[in-house]
């Protein structure tokens, strides 16, 4: 618990290697994320030289290993998987006219699922078709998984296609357990 931050995932375990068919689950809850919401959100993105043409429910790799995720035309998440979360107070004041910062650093746990059969495994928990032909790289689904709400984003991380999953932090332990259980039948297979 360096920096005074503690991940909501209490059951964290050493992730399996990300090779072949094996699935790996990573806890990125202590990685940096922020966001902005409101009618002025897109305008604010422009002032920050970030893309403003994202369709709702898409995600894009932008500069410096960062990702920009659009949940609607007026809500954007900035994800920095390889940077550490800050221990400062989350900003609350409007960043521009009708654009307010999000508290997503603290509200949501960030889990990352990697490996070949990740869509098959997710089909055990989630009613949305997450296979490549229905849920291509760059797509985002706000849906439910194991009876809880989740945001699933399909993107590249360290050159590997992964699902980033954001769940309410109070349900992080539950989500981790449900995912690990569903993964167990895939864990042994390698190729």
């Amino acid at each position: 618990m360096t920096s005074g931050l503690a991940s909501p995932v209490g059951a964290a375990q050493v992730p399996a290697p990300m090779t072949g068919k094996t699935l790996a689950l990573h806890d990125l809850s202590l990685a940096l994320r922020s966001g902005v919401r409101g009618p002025g959100a897109a305008d604010w993105l422009r002032t920050q030289s970030m893309p403003t043409d994202l369709q709702p429910n898409t995600i894009e790799n932008i500069s410096n290993g960062r990702l920009l995720m659009a949940l609607s035309t007026r809500e954007f998440w900035l994800l920095e998987p390889d940077a550490d979360a800050s221990a400062a107070a989350p900003p609350s004041a409007a960043v521009a006219t009708e654009a307010w910062p999000l508290y997503n650093q603290h509200s949501h746990a960030w889990l990352v699922l990697a490996g070949g059969p990740k869509a098959d495994m997710m089909a055990k928990l989630c009613g949305v078709d997450l296979r490549e032909n229905a849920f291509a790289l760059g797509q985002v689904a706000q849906t439910q998984m194991a009876h809880i709400s989740v945001i699933v984003a399909h993107h590249l991380w360290r050159d590997t296609p992964v699902f980033s999953m954001f769940v309410d932090q109070s349900l992080a332990d539950f989500a981790w357990t449900a995912l690990s259980d569903a993964m167990s039948e895939f864990r042994a297979s390698t190729d």
């Binding site: 709702p56 609607s72 949305v128 689904a141 439910q144």
Partner: peptide, 17 residues
């Protein structure tokens, strides 16, 4: 299970609503 088209998120199981 019935499906419904969400204007923001597309077609989903009715249990998501």
């Amino acid at each position: 299970m019935k499906m419904m088209e969400c204007p923001l998120n597309g077609p989903r199981n009715i249990s998501e609503f």
